[in-house]
């Protein structure tokens, strides 16, 4: 589950997390008791409506503002470790 969630967990934290996880899931097993036959899943409490706006350009964030919190910036780009090819 941790790798699916892209979480590298510190070794020492794993036993406690696993224990909590088991305890929480087993406490929630009661969910299976309720007869949900014929009930539509409710994913949002309000009725969905189409949202459109006037087809007109509006100003968004400037590159500098959008990049201001970047851990690593190169020019107007967010920089990340190299994914393709060999050494840069």
């Amino acid at each position: 589950m941790a790798s699916l969630a892209r979480l590298s967990l510190p070794e020492h934290a794993v036993p406690a997390l696993a224990r909590d996880f088991e305890a929480i899931l087993s406490a929630f097993h009661g969910l299976a008791e309720l007869d949900v036959e014929g009930l539509e899943p409710l994913s949002s409490p309000t009725a969905a409506h189409d949202v459109t706006r006037e087809d007109r350009a509006r100003t968004g964030l400037s590159p500098d503002s959008a990049l201001a919190n970047a851990p690593q910036r190169v020019g107007d780009w967010f920089a990340v470790p190299k994914v393709i090819g060999g050494d840069a």
Binding site: A5, R6, S8, L17, V80, K82, V83
Partner: peptide, 24 residues
């Protein structure tokens, strides 16, 4: 690696309750 950076960042910077909820 890129994947390694994702996982290391998330594993270290989230607190215990955030980790629990993300896993759940």
């Amino acid at each position: 690696s890129l994947q390694g950076m994702f996982a290391a960042t998330r594993g270290a910077a989230f607190g215990a309750e955030a980790l629990r909820r993300i896993l759940l």
